[in-house]
């Protein structure tokens, strides 16, 4: 198999993009560690860090990472519905319903985080 096997089919390309979203996850997680570090160091360092987030390079990286994170969330919610089999009584709940529960949880958690911060 060639090393570029994942370019052969649309579904393979989509797969490799999905897998590469892990880089967005790692990147943003490290960014968050530095945010907490700046908070620990005091207000000056914190404001400096927030300025740093405004630099064009960081804005570009964050926009790309945001796309990755969204793709990760959407594919994760859809695919986890395939692995998780929930039964009510005797009937298996359709995957779409499991996925919509994921999305509802996503919205609620996002709203709670915004509410806590602002």
């Amino acid at each position: 198999m060639t090393i570029f096997w994942w370019t052969r089919k649309k579904s393979y390309l989509r797969f490799i993009l999905r897998e590469l979203t892990s880089l967005a996850v790692a990147f943003f997680t490290i960014e968050m560690i530095f945010l907490f570090w700046s908070l620990k160091e005091g207000p000056d360092v914190y404001h400096e860090f927030m300025e740093f987030l405004r630099s064009p390079v960081l804005v570009f990286l964050n926009l790309s990472a945001m796309a990755g994170l969204l793709f990760h969330s959407i594919t994760w919610f859809n695919l986890s519905a395939k692995a998780i089999v929930v039964k009510i009584g005797k009937a298996r709940i359709p995957g779409k319903l499991v996925a919509s529960v994921n999305y509802i949880a996503w919205i609620i958690i996002s709203a709670v985080i915004v509410w806590i911060l602002y």
Binding site: K9, S11, Y12, F15, E19, L79, K82, A83
Partner: peptide, 18 residues
Amino acid sequence: TFVGDCSAVCPKNVDPAG
């Protein structure tokens, strides 16, 4: 690694990936 293409091509909707 859950590429998922197996389920896409299955003519009998077996869903091996799942």
